[in-house]
Simulated assay, not measured.
Amino acid sequence: MGVQRLLRFREPGSYASYSLAELLDGKVPEEKIRGQIVLIGSTAPSFRDLFEVPYTRFHRGESLFEVSGVEIHANRLATLMDERNGNLVQGWIMPGWGNLLLVVGFAASGLLLGERIGKQRLRILAVVLLTSGAAGGLGMLLWHHIWIGMTMQLMVLLSFSGAAWLRRGVESQHHSEQVQRLLGQTTSPAVAQQLWEQRDELLNDGRFKGQQLPITTLFTDKASFPSVSEGMSPRELMDWLNRGMEIYVPAVTQRDGMVNKFTGDGMLAVFGVPLPGDPSAEAQAALEAACEIKSGLERLNAELKSEGAPTMRIRMGIHSGEALVGSIGGAERLEYAVIGDAVNCASRLESHDKNRHEGELRVLLSSTTLELLPTEFRRSLGLE
């Protein structure tokens, strides 16, 4: 039964070499031969006795670095002599079962990091740190002649963590689709994930349970819409409306609000559903959305003026109060309903005294919402 030994490769050119012509011409010093081990071999490429060695990976060129077979034999003899003289550090080699345990451990670590850490950035950071630490640690062991496989372990770690990320991504997409179907509207990924995690508490037979929640409602409508629509073709009118919606919807959803429905040329947005939150924070989020909508309308109207198109003016009503929320409808059509005075009051505020309208956006908010706003926020808006 043969025994495998590690071969120490000297740097290429470590051994003195002479050609046969130099030997025959007497140009080889006698002291270089007498009492020395002399190997005779061919170094010509035509003999195909050239082999790639570990130095190949550090060599850059048009072809891979190769050394002759006789030089590899010289390395073998030198290694045996080092071992005889006690100069060869054999080190310790990890047995096969040990490498298998490491592979299983790294696979479990990759799955754990991919599944247990909630935020994507933290998952990536944890995997990068673990991979870097493992590579550094295994490299240090190799430096101290403890021979442990590195490539397989690190590849398994990255592969299993990547598989866990992919599974979570598919599951998250599925969650979002389920929530979107139940709500009837797109919601932010963070809210969709929260809803799915609390589905046992919130859902009953695939529907949102009826709840009485404190909410803040934002209701909008366009001023002078009938006159604007008369001067535009159906296609132009739809494009005009959608350019406005591209401003309103992100302003709401980016603050964890929900666009509950579109009302022709307006919309109903709700803050504080389907997950109950801090009423003060929800009221502030509604006002922040209104401020962002105003800024967006100013930019949009500048573009519309340059195009010769009608400008857009919006009325908005905001009110806070309790409302009945939950899924309503049948198997063929199901939507998330928000019912109560909180919605009705916002609608009345929006439509109140329509002739009083200056600028792109007119906002009327109830005293209930005003009282919920933090003092510093009210001052920043000039409401105190």
Rank of each mutant, 00 (worst) to 15 (best):
M1N: 10
M1E: 07
V3K: 15
L6N: 12
R8S: 07
F9Q: 03
S14C: 01
Y15M: 10
S17T: 14
S17F: 02
Y18I: 07
S19N: 09
E22H: 06
E22P: 01
K32A: 15
L39M: 11
S46N: 06
P54H: 08
T56C: 09
R57A: 12
E62P: 00
S63E: 13
V67F: 03
V70Q: 08
V70E: 04
H73V: 08
H73W: 13
N75H: 14
L77Q: 05
T79W: 04
M81A: 12
M81V: 09
G86E: 03
W92K: 05
P95V: 05
G98N: 05
F106E: 07
A108C: 11
L113R: 11
I117D: 03
G118H: 09
K119R: 12
L122F: 13
R123P: 06
V127H: 00
V127W: 01
V128L: 13
T131N: 11
A135I: 09
G137P: 05
M140A: 13
H144T: 03
H145P: 02
I146H: 15
I148C: 05
T151R: 12
M155F: 14
V156F: 15
A163I: 10
W165S: 10
G169V: 02
G169T: 10
V179D: 06
L183M: 13
Q185E: 09
Q185K: 09
T187A: 15
S188R: 12
A192M: 07
Q193L: 10
W196D: 11
E197Q: 14
E197K: 12
L203D: 01
G206A: 01
G206R: 00
R207L: 15
Q211P: 03
Q211V: 02
Q211L: 05
Q212T: 03
L213G: 01
I215V: 11
T216A: 00
F219K: 03
S224H: 13
E230N: 08
G231S: 14
M232R: 06
S233R: 10
N242K: 08
R243T: 00
R243A: 00
E246V: 08
V249A: 00
V252K: 01
R255Y: 05
T263R: 04
D265A: 09
D265M: 10
L268Y: 02
L268T: 05
V270E: 03
V273F: 11
V273K: 09
D278I: 04
S280V: 06
Q284W: 07
Q284V: 00
A285I: 00
A289I: 03
A289L: 06
A289E: 01
A290F: 04
E292T: 14
I293R: 00
K294Y: 07
G296D: 10
L297T: 07
E298V: 11
R299A: 10
R299K: 10
K305H: 09
E307A: 13
E307V: 03
E307P: 00
M312P: 04
R315Y: 12
M316C: 15
G317E: 04
G317I: 07
H319G: 04
S320C: 05
G321A: 07
E322M: 09
A323V: 00
A323H: 08
V325W: 06
G326N: 06
I328R: 12
I328V: 15
E332G: 12
E332L: 14
R333N: 10
A337S: 14
V338F: 15
A342Y: 14
R348Y: 02
R348F: 02
L349R: 08
E350M: 02
S351I: 03
H352G: 01
R356F: 00
S367K: 14
E371S: 13
T375A: 07
L381C: 05
L383R: 11
E384V: 04
